[in-house]
Each structure stands twice: as structure tokens, then as C-alpha cells.
């Protein structure tokens, strides 16, 4: 058998092309980032422009300026671009009808992933940084989002009121305080600038409250969210401290969540003293005291 002969061969020639009156003007306009189509004899706008329409009829010579945006009428996704392709990463070849044009052009869309491509999607020209007067002055098209980002970024101070401050300072010392309503005598935690029953501030003299109470009702949180302190599932509930008439809200833990129940007696589990600040977060969570549950009627008025 004779050896099969093979040698590399490159067909290469840098052509010089005459562009003629229509394509020449079009490509020259690209240097100025201007897109022009041409009006056909039947009134349609052809883009990119040609001297004749697809029926061979001469176009009118009337150039029509178009916006650099258009709509994808068809596309294909290229996972492995070839060296000749306009982009070196996965992209879409697309037929794109510029706004105001009646014919579509072929070009590339840099959409990142195939899922971002859709017939009917809106795209915009990405211009080459350095103009060459060729169709490559359009690098590719980018998807247009109907959404713009307008961040609002304002810096404020938060300054708790007098009653709230008193409460937070007490928490920083490991204490709960409440304030008595001047009309009904009921105890509010925290003390308040006004109680709904009186319209008056709670009494000036605050009341020290224990860190024990009754879990009146609760939810098992199973949904994750940003800044969450515990890993779901965990319990968040309303706790009426002994001697108070309104609940505070906190986490409940220390036993499996399935065993947590309405009426359970709980006590605050404080963080180490050195971590305390002016915040309810000094308490990690409330945990069962082990005492018998409170009967329903004893806390029903708090629900």
C-alpha cells in the first residue's frame, strides 16, 4: 500500500473590496456610531442597506437613521465558539431586526447563558472601542433589561426614645423593667411614652421584672432569611414575663422544638456578661424552667 500524502495548505488573501455608494456610506457611518438603513421602492427600510432589494429592484437612495436597539427574531446558541467567531465565549448567533427596520441582520448576542436568550428579546449594539469602518465596528449585541438600577443610599441615626432607652440600659445590666399604666395599673414592657389605655406615659417609677414568664403562643420558623440567628427550624414566640401584662417576643430553645408548647414556663438564657449591650440580644433565647405549664385560662387574655 502506498503512503497517503498530505501537507498543510493555507488559502489566504487580504482582499480590497469596493463598497459602492450604499455599503460604503453605511460602513463609513459606523465609524461615527451611526446606523443607517435604506428605503426600498416599496417603502420598507432595509438594514443593513443595499443598492437593491431582494427582488432586484433598486432601492431609493434615501437613508434612514436607526436606533442601536432591536429585537431578536431567531437565534442559535454556540457553546464552543470557533476562532473566527466574534466572541471567544459561549454566545448566540441571532437574527436581529433593528427598531424601524423591516429586515433583520445576522449578528452575535453576548447573553452569557442560553437561558437568557428568547425570541422577541430586546438587544442593543455594543460598539468597538476603535472604529475600523467594517461591520466589526459592531462587536456584538447585548441584551437590554427593562430595569435600571437606581440605588438609594442614605445615612441616618437611630435614637431610641426616653422610655425605650431606659429599657435598653436596664437590659445592658441584665435586668427587665416595665412601666405601670397610670389608669389601669397594667404593666407594660418596655415602659412607654403613652399607653393605649390612657394616652399618658407609664408611671415614672419603673418596675423590676424577673426574667421568667409564660410562652403564650409561638411559631416554628422553618424559612431561612438573611441575618438569621438560629438555624431553622426554631421557635419564635410571645412571652409574658411574670408580673407583666403585655408579651415580649423572643426565641425559645433549649429543648427540641417539637416539645415546645403554649403555656410553657420559660426563663431567659443570657449571653456571657461581657457580651451584654443595650439590646434584647443579650438574651440568646428563652428556655424551659421545668415547672408545670400554666393553665390556658391564666394566659388566654394575652392572645
Amino acid at each position: 500500500m502506498t503512503e497517503r500524502l498530505s501537507a498543510p495548505y493555507r488559502l489566504h488573501y487580504a482582499y480590497t473590496r469596493s463598497t459602492g455608494p450604499v455599503i460604503g456610506r453605511f460602513l463609513d457611518s459606523l465609524r461615527d456610531r451611526v446606523l443607517e438603513g435604506i428605503r426600498a421602492a416599496d417603502g420598507r427600510v432595509l438594514f443593513p442597506p443595499t443598492e437593491y432589494d431582494e427582488q432586484g429592484r433598486a432601492t431609493t437612495g434615501e437613508f434612514v437613521q436607526l436606533r442601536p436597539t432591536g429585537t431578536v427574531t431567531s437565534y442559535t446558541w454556540v457553546n464552543e465558539p470557533r476562532p473566527t467567531h466574534p466572541l471567544d465565549r459561549p454566545f448566540a448567533w441571532a437574527l436581529i431586526k433593528l427598531d424601524g427596520a423591516d429586515t433583520a441582520m445576522v449578528h452575535a448576542v453576548d447573553a452569557g447563558k442560553e437561558k437568557a436568550m428568547k425570541v422577541g428579546m430586546r438587544v442593543r449594539v455594543r460598539w468597538a472601542e476603535k472604529a475600523t469602518g467594517t461591520i466589526r465596528d459592531i462587536v456584538c449585541f447585548d441584551p437590554i433589561s427593562p430595569i435600571i438600577k437606581t440605588p438609594v443610599d442614605l445615612n441616618y441615626f437611630v435614637r431610641p426614645g426616653e422610655h425605650q432607652s431606659q429599657y435598653l440600659h436596664a437590659l445592658a445590666e441584665g435586668r427587665f423593667i416595665g412601666g405601670r399604666c397610670r389608669v389601669t395599673g397594667r404593666v407594660y414592657v418596655p415602659p412607654r411614652g403613652a399607653t393605649p389605655e390612657s394616652g399618658l406615659p407609664t408611671e415614672d417609677e419603673v418596675i423590676d421584672l424577673p426574667d421568667t414568664g409564660v410562652l403564650t403562643t409561638f411559631t416554628v420558623v422553618r424559612i431561612p432569611f438573611e441575618g438569621q440567628k438560629l438555624t431553622p427550624p426554631y421557635v419564635f414566640g410571645a412571652i409574658v414575663l411574670d408580673g407583666a401584662d403585655v408579651p415580649i417576643y423572643h426565641l425559645v430553645s433549649g429543648i427540641p422544638y417539637e416539645q415546645i408548647r403554649m403555656g410553657m414556663r420559660v426563663r431567659a438564657k443570657w449571653k456571657p456578661r461581657e457580651e451584654w449591650g443595650t439590646t434584647l440580644e443579650n438574651i440568646e433565647y428563652f428556655e424551659p424552667t421545668g415547672e408545670p405549664d400554666a393553665p390556658f385560662d391564666s394566659y388566654a387574655m394575652h392572645l
Binding site: R159, P160, G161, E162, H163, Q164, G193, A194
Partner: peptide, 15 residues
């Protein structure tokens, strides 16, 4: 103003 939340702003003027 000194420490005053919304309720502490409103309560005195309303009263």
C-alpha cells in the same frame, strides 16, 4: 431634641 420616639413627640402636643 433629647431622646424622644414618635409616641413621645406626639403624646405631649396631643395632650
Amino acid at each position: 431634641m433629647g431622646p424622644s420616639d414618635e409616641s413621645e413627640l406626639v403624646q405631649p402636643v396631643v395632650t
